[in-house]
Nucleic acid binder design. Structure first.
Lengths: 135, 135
DNA sequence: CTACAAGTTCAAGTTGACTTGAAGTCAAGT
DNA sequence: ACTTGACTTCAAGTCAACTTGAACTTGTAG
């Protein structure tokens, strides 16, 4: 496996070195090997960072991400906690996907109807996407 | 139209009154009518709040949301600025939807393969979803 | 008339996710 | 031997998005 310096990892993941150290400090990234005090990484860290980036964009907190990776050592068996968390997140993802599709449709509609801003055309658009009950 | 107090709006939108005042202060909500100093709202504010909630969950900042509503009065025509912003956001939405689907698949796969946490099964799963080139 | 709940403003505090700065370490090159 | 550049730690700072608290006003109910 190729060994990477912290700045190489940062460059490849498109983040700062300070972010990597921060993630390590809050236990979202594992402690890497050290050579004379310096961190050296295995390329696998890039997959983990990619996962973190995506899940973050989707509204997971670093705390939740940490749980996804670690699944704390409390009374309930690891597998149960992890599966519950994963199942819950799958449902959240589905909701998010539905909403993202709605917002996209809303934006497309907002362009189509020719208004110059969203404020002007809220009335002619929004009502198509949100039930009155929800409001 | 029905007139709503700030606490009615808060209750129906599932947020705090302080949030409503905050939104008004940063110009994400318009200044409502006042009756003896107290804010009174038209039900339309609920649609606007629903839109804010969804777009926020999808990673829009309040600043961006404010732009979506207002489309600043700079040199470029209103319609052009709004359309550019909307088009850009549609592309972002599509990316987000793709990613949400990927994360969902990843979670499903993570459950299917029987590992007790994501850390343990990153290797057997993640590689299916992220190209080596991207890493 | 007084009490009270619900409203008001404004300044300061909080939380999450980082970033920045100061001060020091370390190996490689000249 | 010394400089350079990339690293290290740790504390403090920043930014967005709210929340909280203190001090005050106002219409309605008893």
């Amino acid at each position: 496996m190729e060994a990477l310096t912290i700045s190489e990892v940062a460059r490849r993941a498109g983040i700062r070195t300070s972010t990597i150290r921060y993630y390590e400090s809050i236990d979202v990234l594992p402690q890497p090997q050290r050579v004379s005090g310096r961190r050296i990484y295995d390329a696998a860290v890039l997959e983990r960072l990619a996962f973190i980036q995506v899940t973050q964009k989707l509204g997971f907190s670093l705390n939740e991400i940490q749980l996804l990776f670690h699944t704390q050592e409390d009374q309930t068996p690891l597998s149960e906690r992890w599966q519950a968390l994963a199942n819950q997140k799958i449902v959240e993802m589905e909701g998010l996907i539905r909403q993202a599709v709605d917002v996209k449709e809303l934006l497309i509609e907002g362009l189509r109807c020719g208004c110059t801003n969203l404020f002007d055309c809220m009335d002619c658009v929004v009502t198509n996407y949100y039930e009155p009950t929800h409001l």
